[in-house]
């Protein structure tokens, strides 16, 4: 039988982190779209307390603050897709949402939940990484609310594992408003528009000026225990003219730098091939459309 014997639904952040600090053994419930099936399948064991954080207003909403867009951790994928600040500044997140699970799940799943699940194939992670996102964490180790932030790539440790401390809550994601000339692409490999766990995904972003890419960020999903930066690919692109030779070199760098595994969704060989081919297609698309 489950050890779960307590349910709380705090209504403020302070209260939530206080209770986290006090109770220790807590399972956090956000959208529930992953927690419920994982728990039913026995892959997640409930701790003593289930804390429903959905009643905390501070965790919701999308605002512009100091040159950044701050997205509350509890914001659902559907809310992100519909928000004017996102469509104006971060259109990449709108198209990412369009490939995310299904309508019903987009209505329930939260951005914070997708991040904290830390699945190597988590749909929002690669786009957030190339957008330069950081996560905002809160806790209350003593009398004072303690906040810290961390660049997203550092947050992930392994499948389902993050640097979130036991008494800490992910409160928001911060994304710098992209500069002029910013281009970004996300490719989720799949045979259908959505409701698919990607066999691989690729994000590419940078500033395109005079046919050259700079401030390049590349990330890959589902090729390692966590979403990973494509550092060699970035290097192959940084400051280069985006011509056929650069694209070929970048695609090759991408293929060479990933080390995926084989599983039910694809073989390692095929994943590497797709990383190559799709990186090339993304870059060709960028070159052709800007």
């Amino acid at each position: 039988m489950t050890a779960l014997d307590n349910y709380i639904a705090p209504t403020s952040l302070e209260q939530a982190v206080e209770q986290l600090q006090e109770l220790g053994e807590v399972t956090i419930l956000a959208g529930g779209t992953d927690l419920m099936p994982q728990a039913n399948a026995g892959r997640v064991k409930f701790k003593r307390t289930l804390m429903n954080i959905r009643r905390i207003p501070e965790l919701r909403g999308i605002v512009r603050e100091d040159g950044e867009i701050r997205i509350g951790a509890l914001t659902t994928i559907a809310e992100i897709m519909a928000h004017p600040l996102v469509s104006e500044h971060l259109p990449l997140l709108v198209s990412t949402g369009d490939h995310f699970a299904s309508g019903q799940i987009r209505n329930a799943a939260t951005l914070g939940g997708n991040i904290c699940n830390a699945s190597p194939a988590g749909d929002t992670l690669v786009p957030l990484m190339v957008l330069g996102a950081s996560v905002e964490l809160a806790s209350k180790p003593d009398d004072k609310l303690f906040r810290r932030s961390m660049p997203l790539p550092e947050f992930f440790v392994g499948p389902g594992k993050t640097r979130l401390a036991p008494a800490e809550l992910l409160t928001a994601v911060r994304i710098p408003i992209p500069p002029k000339g910013f281009v970004a692409r996300f490719h989720k490999f799949g045979t259908r528009p959505a409701l698919d766990i990607s066999a691989i995904s690729i994000g590419v972003a940078g500033v395109l000026k005079d046919g050259k890419l700079s401030q390049v960020r590349v990330a890959f999903g589902a090729v390692a225990p966590t979403p990973v930066c494509g550092c060699a690919t970035e290097e192959a692109l940084e400051g280069k003219k985006l011509d056929a030779a650069t694209i070929d070199a970048a695609a090759q760098a991408a293929q060479d730098e990933v080390h995926p595994i084989s599983d039910v969704r694809a073989s390692a060989w095929y994943r590497k091939e797709m990383i190559h081919n799709m990186t090339r297609r993304i870059l060709e698309d960028v070159a052709a459309n800007h």
Binding site: T191, P193, L195, D196, I197, V264
Partner: peptide, 28 residues
């Protein structure tokens, strides 16, 4: 023809759910 396969490896079904046993969906 295209999407469905019950993956059986050494007698073990590897994809006993709709997540990895892919029925055709409406957009396809």
């Amino acid at each position: 023809a295209l999407t469905e396969e019950l993956l059986v490896e050494n007698g073990v079904v590897r994809n006993p759910g709709f997540r990895d046993y892919k029925l055709v969906t409406a957009p396809e």
